[in-house]
Amino acid sequence: MQAAVTDTINKLADTANHAAQQLAAVPDQELRFGDLLLKGGWVMVPIGILAILGLVIFFERYFTIRKASKDESNLMQQVRSSILTGNLESAIAICRNSNSPLGRMLQKGLLRIGRPIKDIEGAIENIGKLEVSKLEKNIGILGIVAGIAPMFGFLGTIAGVIKIFYDISKTDNISMGVISGGLYVKMVTSAAGLFVGIVAYVCYHVLNMMVDKVILKLETDAIEFIDLLEEPSK
């Protein structure tokens, strides 16, 4: 009886050891983000380029627009003081040295003093349009990235699915493991494309909102400047 029990215990121990060896032999199935991106295939290259392009444009435009949106109340006060004292040369020099969109607009208006107010308004408006165009430079590319990146992602997924079913037709292996194993890898391109597109879409509208604020501020300061020029004639 004791021998039978000992034999059973030995068999259980052998079974446990065998199971442990099998578990140890199973390869690590942990999903690594970097490996997953590499498995996305060639489509990940244009998606990556679009992502880098979008980030470069966003940060370059962000700091440019932020610089243009700085508070110019001190500039307006100095220009007002110079105009009220009749020192136009000083006002022009102040605007020139400011090196800002508002400064260039006011400088153009000051150089037109002596002409009808409509001419001064037109000159300021034209310079304002040029300054806004400079601020909006390359922002439209972010909109293009937001539209193209998801398309590249879907293209990669569709190409991957076509390849999966082509391989199935050649090997006649319709197992779920073959289909799902290849499909989840190809879906990476769709996820990457959508992610880049969403980020580019948000960045595009953030920059546009910043430009709109700058435009509103420039228009307000331009109106204040025109009112200042009309004060002596009232």
Score class of each variant (00 low, 15 high):
residue 103 G to A: 11
residue 100 S to I: 01
residue 5 V to N: 14
residue 29 Q to S: 09
residue 87 N to V: 05
residue 23 L to R: 01
residue 6 T to W: 11
residue 172 D to Y: 12
residue 227 D to K: 14
residue 97 N to M: 13
residue 135 L to P: 04
residue 174 I to T: 12
residue 25 A to F: 03
residue 185 V to I: 08
residue 166 Y to W: 10
residue 106 L to P: 05
residue 15 T to K: 12
residue 169 S to T: 09
residue 87 N to H: 15
residue 114 G to A: 11
residue 197 G to S: 07
residue 145 V to D: 03
residue 183 L to R: 00
residue 14 D to T: 07
residue 170 K to H: 06
residue 55 L to E: 03
residue 23 L to E: 03
residue 219 E to V: 04
residue 137 K to H: 09
residue 42 W to H: 10
residue 176 M to W: 03
residue 102 L to E: 13
residue 205 H to W: 13
residue 61 R to E: 02
residue 128 G to W: 06
residue 8 T to R: 12
residue 151 M to Q: 08
residue 70 K to E: 15
residue 153 G to S: 06
residue 132 V to N: 12
residue 182 G to C: 09
residue 77 Q to T: 13
residue 137 K to A: 10
residue 56 V to H: 14
residue 108 K to A: 15
residue 126 N to M: 12
residue 83 I to T: 06
residue 170 K to C: 08
residue 85 T to N: 12
residue 181 G to T: 04
residue 161 V to I: 15
residue 180 S to Q: 06
residue 224 E to P: 00
residue 224 E to T: 04
residue 19 A to W: 11
residue 135 L to D: 04
residue 131 E to P: 01
residue 37 L to V: 13
residue 181 G to N: 02
residue 120 I to R: 04
residue 82 S to Y: 05
residue 194 L to W: 04
residue 175 S to W: 00
residue 29 Q to F: 09
residue 156 G to V: 07
residue 159 A to V: 11
residue 185 V to P: 00
residue 21 Q to Y: 01
residue 74 N to C: 10
residue 230 E to P: 00
residue 97 N to Q: 15
residue 121 E to G: 11
residue 12 L to N: 14
residue 97 N to R: 15
residue 100 S to V: 01
residue 163 K to E: 12
residue 58 F to P: 06
residue 73 S to Q: 13
residue 224 E to L: 07
residue 96 R to D: 15
residue 82 S to W: 06
residue 51 A to K: 03
residue 165 F to A: 07
residue 214 V to A: 06
residue 22 Q to Y: 02
residue 210 M to C: 09
residue 231 E to C: 03
residue 150 P to V: 04
residue 24 A to S: 11
